[in-house]
Each structure stands twice: as C-alpha cells, then as structure tokens.
Design a protein around this nucleic acid. Structure first.
Lengths: 349, 349
DNA sequence: GGTCGGCTTGCAATCGATTACACCTGCTCC
DNA sequence: GGAGCAGGTGTAATCGATTGCAAGCCGACC
C-alpha cells in the first residue's frame, strides 16, 4: 500500500497555500494565526495549527523577508576568523543573535577583495539587518560613503577613532594601567612594553594606559623599552631577542596581547632566561592557554563572551527600534578589565 | 540648489524598475543584461550598465533568492565556535564560500535548543543551499528524518559513524600511528595515551591508530596507561595527576589533542617533572601555540585551513550539480596528517 | 428596530526580482 | 517571393509570504 505514506514524501515543501486549503481558510488567516495568534478566533487557530502540523509546513523565510523588507540576519565583520581571540567573542554574538531569531553571517575583512564587493553588498543589499564590526581598521566613513542609508552598525572590541557610531569596548587603558600598578607594587622600577600593530586602536589605548600609569608612578619611559609587535607569537619572540640585546634591561615587561607574552617567554626560555626569576611578564586578554602556560601568565582578563553578547544586544536593540538612533557620543559602553595574578610576575630581588 | 544632489539621497534603494525606466527598456532586459550579458545587444547592455551606475542599483538578493528558490548561503554547524581548532577551519570555509558568492551562516550546535528548532529551520526552510557539519555527534539520521528532501550535506573533520553522507577527513588513525612510530623509534617501550571524549569519532580513530601501531611494534597496551579526557587543557592537567600516581609510569605519552598535551605538560611542570627529560609528550592538531609552548610540542599537524576549503568546495560542487548526488561510500576524501618533531620528545635514557 | 463598534475573516495588492512565451525584425536560402 | 531561423526585446506570470482594506456577523445601546 504505497499510498499510506504518500503524504509528505519528497514533494516540494508545503506552502502557506497548502495549509490554507487544508484548514479551509484563507492564506491571510494562516499567516495571522502564526504571527499574530491573538487576532484569530481560537477555533480557527486550532484548525490552522493542526493543518500546519499535518503538512509539516515551515514558513519560507525568503518570502517573508522580501515582504517585510528585512534580512533576518546580522553580519559580523571580523579581521581573521582564525584568531582565537575573536572566536570567543563570536560565540557570544552567535548565542545572543540566535536567541533573537537572527542568523549570523560572518565575513573576513582580511580577505582579498573584501573591501568593495562583499562589504557594500552587505551594506546596501538587504542581506543584513545590522552589522557588527570587530575590525577597527575599517574607517568609519566607509560605512556612510555615498550618503545612502544603511542598516544599524555597532563596533565591538575595536573601533574607528572619532567614529560617531556606537561601540562596545573594554577599558583597555585601564587594563594596561592595572598591569603597571601590579608591577610597580612588586617593586619594579624599569618596565617595558611590547606593542601591537601601530595602526590598531587597542595598541594605542593600551599604550596610553601604560604611559599614564608609568607617569603617575614616576617611573622612567625609555624608548628602547618599547618593542614592536603585531599581537602574534612570532613578534613576541622577536621582542625577546631585542630584550636580550639591551645594555640595560627592564626587570618587567607588559605585552599588549597574551600571544606576544607567550612568544616572549618562549624565546627567553630558549635563551636560558627565566620567568619570573629574571624578568616578570604580564599579558593582555587572558586567552585560555594563559592559565596553563609555563609559567602561568599574569594577565589582564576581559569578558570576551560578554562583549559579544553586549554588542549583539545593542545591535538588536537598534534594529528593533530604528527611530532612536542617537549617533552621538556617550553611546559607547565600556566593560571593565581585571587583573589576574599568576606565576609570571614576582617582586624584584 | 538642493536639487543638485537629490538623485540618490536617502531614498529607498533603487529597484530594477527604476533602472529599466532610466534605460528605457523593460525589467526583463535589465535582468538579462546583468545576469546573461550575451543575450542582450551590445548597445542596450551599455545603456543598462550606465543606468545601473547612475542609480547605484544593487540587486535585491532576497527577491532573487525567492524567485530562484535558493538561499545564497551555506550554514556551518560547529560544536562550540569558541574553540580555536574550529575557527581555522571556518576561515578556510569562509574564504572558499565567499569566492563562490555564498554567504556563510554559523550555528553553534552546543547551544541549548539547537537541536530541533534552528537546525530543522536550516534543513527545510530554504535558509541554506547546503550544510557543512563539523560535529560528528549529530547523528546522520538526524538529517534524513521524516524522509523529506534536504539540501546537500557534507561532513568535515568529524563525521557520524556509518554515515552515507560525503565527508572530508584527516587521516586520524594514520596520524596517531605516526606519533607511536616516532616514539618507538626513539626507544620508548611504554607509551600512554590521553583520550578525547569517548563519544567522539576522532577520539576513537586516533585510539585505533594508536592501538594498531602499538600492536605492530609489539609494545604493551596497559589499561592504566589510557587517560580520560575531553580535548581540553583541564583534562590534560588531570591526566598528569593520574600519571604521577602510577606505580609504573610510561616514559612517553601521546595526547589526542594539543590542548591536552599542553595541560599535561603544564601540570607536570608544577609537580617538578620535566619534559622531555622525564617523559616525552606528543600532541595532535598542531595548534598555533604548540610551536611556542615550553618545551615546543612535537605533534601531528593537519592542514586545517585546507580541510575547510576542501569541504566547502565539495559542498559547493554538490549544490551546483544536484543531479550527481551519490550518497554511496567512496565519497570520502582523506587528507594526510604529518608529524612535526619539536622538543617535547627525546630518546629514552 | 436601527446604528455603532468590535471581532473575524477574506480579497487582492505588494515586496523585487526572474523567466517562459510571444512577438518583431531582418536575413538567408530555396 | 515566401518560409524559416536567429537575435533581441517586451509582457506578464511567478516565487511565497504579509497586510491594508473591506465586509460580514453579532451583541449592545438608545
């Protein structure tokens, strides 16, 4: 009896028309029964629900989106998806967005032709209801180019300097200061700093916090105690080589990222220098490995999951209430950084 | 003279109708000029292009997708986006998909209600033209449930045992064997193994490779030399504690993931045991930090970016040619693993 | 008894593209 | 000179939902 299970087999997906027919109502009623249940009589609603279940109907999002002029998705612009620092933030974004029924599209801004094509697609093609930018190197004006209207945009983590767009940030300067305070409290008088890429806002903010804290404590700021880097392990290792060559070495070094701190310690180890006996090291970010590195890394911890959630919520809020769109300042949320003391720092001998 | 720049300002996006009007042709012609240039007279094409440029027209993807019954996106089901292991694979996927003009949607399968709602949304709602599954714990039958048609599906990295769906994999067993060979060559006769989660295919594959290689070399397989784990740093550290308690300790340990290997070494360090002097350690995955851990970790390297690319290409191929959809076996591609020797292994004393 | 208002429901337009089909023009070939 | 064909274009249906408007029904109120 092949007819028995002939109901659903392999046919094209049922549409709202099919449901309407089964329930003996109009498509309008089906639509309302599903998205505004209160506006439909109870009995009718029951009939519709039943028809939906029997047919296995699922709304076609594309059609709905076309009609409603929305996309049902947000896009996240991230510089290098492969970087674990961002993936945790992504996790926070994804959790929040999916709770709100929004899909998450990711786009890598470091991709070859990412700048014109795809990006402006997202901006003006209704592919996204909102955009979350994790890449501060994309200039602000990029988004307002051609004075056309665009979906809401929120910066998270990084931002473009002088932007009027809302942003969710960590207190990077404050975090860097925390690191210096900690080292100064341990009696360190000579403190170096490994920088991130110079065109990065985080690098600049962290350096600002570092410099200010040094000044506040009356500690020296020597140019040869700043080391170039770009947040990667390799440049951290490179800084170690530079440190070794120094005629007068700082007794402590703060790095603008944990990866650089680890690279730094790794290279020191290979050269027979001990942390924290010979030099204290503080990182920034508190990535997973920090706790288990050898020695365990003292660092500045930031709630990365939380920044993802907060940013996603801010964006969703803007999407839902397009009216209040205050692009003024004061639209920036600052999340606290926290010092986590482990074994890579100790008092000067 | 406000009229001067009145052309584009803040109006709703131009539609194909607007372009047609400007170029004095029908919408059909505009559509053809853009997606099948050859079928339109050169002069007409020029007119259309010009109108497109003057108006700043961009096709509305939602409308196009509705008409074409496609989604313009693939979805990647990943267990825990926050895990750096996956983020590199994601990067490969993203690069490939965006080259093919497809958006990438990510969904976290470890999310609370991820199992019924969102997932079946993706499966049957035209939200995705194809699905890439990085989570082998999602059983195969999950996708074919209710014998409805679904978009093409490809497993990458992990897979569900006995699946008939295509999959792209590393040679996990081979990699694990490589690790054992290496240690045996160094003279180790007692080798332990830290397992991943038991319900994970990779765990099982790697263990199988490990066991076989042991057998082939005539080395002992002792139950108390297998340590439980779940791929995380914490469980690696835990295994170290177990190792320390052992009356008879293996002189070498292979871990089913680099993270566990690092956790293991970290905890040994805290207990005064030295790697590789007291025990040799081999990891699996070759994550970034492996090279810079202390000591640098000998491990099995897998081309993660490449697996992402390969999987994405396989999926895209299936999307473009829905006809040849051989769900038979033999539809699995195996990518080679490679041993990278660093400093965490040495010959037995 | 008639009017008004609230609650349900259906009709049909609409979102913005794609594309089957028909039509027109001009040329070739017999 | 007419049939046939190819190339180029337009008309209008279509994808699958949402929603403004109108209409029907029913009870309440004067």
């Amino acid at each position: 009896m092949p007819g028995r299970r002939g109901g659903i087999v392999n046919k094209a997906s049922p549409t709202i028309q099919d449901v309407a027919r089964m329930a003996n109502v109009s498509t309008a009623t089906v639509s309302r029964a599903l998205s505004a249940p209160a506006s439909v009589a109870e009995e009718t609603r029951r009939l519709v629900i039943e028809a939906v279940e029997r047919s296995g109907y699922r709304v076609n999002q594309t059609a709905r989106n076309l009609r409603r002029k929305q996309a049902g998705a947000i896009v996240v612009l991230v510089p290098n998806i492969g970087n674990p620092f961002f993936s945790r933030i992504l996790a926070g974004i994804e959790a929040t967005a999916s709770k709100a029924g929004l899909n998450v599209l990711i786009a890598d801004t470091r991709q070859p032709r990412a700048h014109e094509g795809p990006l402006s697609e997202y901006l003006h093609n209704n592919r996204a209801d909102g955009i979350l930018v994790l890449d501060g190197s994309l200039p602000d004006r990029f988004f307002s180019a051609g004075n056309r209207s665009h979906p809401p945009i929120v910066y998270a983590c990084e931002w473009s300097e002088g932007t009027r767009l809302p942003s969710i940030r960590f207190d990077n300067a404050g975090g860097a200061a925390l690191a210096v305070e900690h080292l100064a409290d341990l009696g360190h008088k000579s403190i170096g700093h490994i920088l991130g890429p110079l065109d990065n806002v985080l690098t600049r903010e962290r350096r600002r916090g570092f410099d200010n804290a040094l000044k506040a404590r009356g500690l020296p700021m020597r140019p040869d105690w700043y080391f170039d880097g770009d947040f990667t392990l390799a440049t951290g290792a490179n800084a170690a080589l530079r440190w070794l060559e120094l005629p007068e070495r700082p007794t402590a070094v703060t790095a603008s990222s944990d990866e650089m701190a680890c690279g730094f310690m790794s290279e020191l180890y290979r050269n027979g220098v001990k942390v924290p006996e010979d030099v204290s090291v503080v990182g920034f970010d508190d990535i997973d490995i920090a706790e288990r590195f050898i020695p365990a890394l003292t660092t500045i911890s930031q709630p990365r999951m939380e920044i993802g959630e907060t940013a996603a919520n801010a964006l969703i809020d803007l999407i839902r209430n397009p009216d209040r769109k205050p692009t003024g300042t004061g639209f920036t949320r600052l999340l606290d950084a926290r010092l986590v003391v482990r074994s890579s720092t100790r008092a000067v001998a």
